[in-house]
């Protein structure tokens, strides 16, 4: 699905990430962890083409990112669902339309989608909030709305950046359950988090690999968790 090969990235100063290789295979479940500022968000951005590596190679679904133009990147986003740490929405449109936005943008909005949309909103527990505007949502509701938006196109990969960053434990459990369900449906999942409790909870439900960024490199952790 997504392959990184000897990737390095620098924001101008020293290298933030260097000599980093990673393969996200179909149906895999990965956690990405590491201290704040270690480059978790940067790595995720490299994975969906928002950043281009300063050296090395990133391949999205087999194509080299450095040779993809802006439209090709945009089209690849339709196969990758992204949940951000601070989820952003179109604040003037209700939740239901925000969740359906990827369909509208892809020109795949069809009259029959309302039923699917209702099911999806029920799945993330937002049925009663469908007509609310995003600024009226709580932190947890925003995260779940972002997750619904990320999966409405039935993407092959879901990337989540601190999806439980500003919600309580119970809510983070619910979000994790949703992501695990997606993984069981065959989606590739990568979650960046520094919440070790969450990782432990996930390991009980799913075969998850834990990657840790330290000293600008990626290490496989897991045995110690």
């Amino acid at each position: 699905m997504i392959e990184l090969e000897n990737v390095a990235y620098s924001y101008g100063g020293g290298e933030l990430l260097s000599d980093l290789s990673l393969q996200l295979g179909a149906g895999s479940f990965h956690f990405l962890t590491g201290p704040s500022g270690a480059g978790k968000t940067t790595l995720l951005k490299l994975c969906y083409g928002a950043l281009r590596p300063t050296s090395g190679q990133v391949r999205l679904f087999g194509s080299d990112v450095t040779h993809m133009d802006r439209d090709a990147i945009a089209l690849s986003r339709r196969r990758v669902g992204v949940v951000h740490q601070d989820c952003q929405f179109l604040d003037h449109l209700p939740v239901a339309e925000n969740v359906a936005l990827p369909l509208a943008v892809a020109g795949q909005a069809v009259p029959g989608q309302d039923e699917n949309l209702r099911e999806l909103l029920a799945w993330v527990g937002l049925t009663g909030r469908a007509m609310a505007l995003p600024p009226e949502l709580s932190g947890g509701e925003r995260q779940r709305a972002a997750l619904a938006r990320a999966v409405i196109m039935s993407p092959e990969v879901v990337l989540a950046d601190e999806p439980t960053g500003n919600v309580d434990w119970e809510m983070s459990q619910r979000l994790l359950t949703l992501l695990v369900e997606l993984n069981r449906m065959g989606k590739t999942i990568l979650i960046a988090t520094h919440d070790l409790q969450l990782i432990r909870a996930a390991k009980a439900q799913v075969q998850a690999r834990v990657l840790r960024i330290s000293n600008r490199r990626l290490q496989t952790a897991g045995a110690d968790l």
Binding site: A74, L75, R77, V82, Q88, D91, P102, V105, A106
Partner: peptide, 16 residues
């Protein structure tokens, strides 16, 4: 800018 960032994130092409 936020609208454009959101649209870009969900896969909108520049033309759209």
């Amino acid at each position: 800018a936020q609208v454009i960032a959101v649209l870009r994130l969900v896969g909108a092409t520049d033309i759209y």
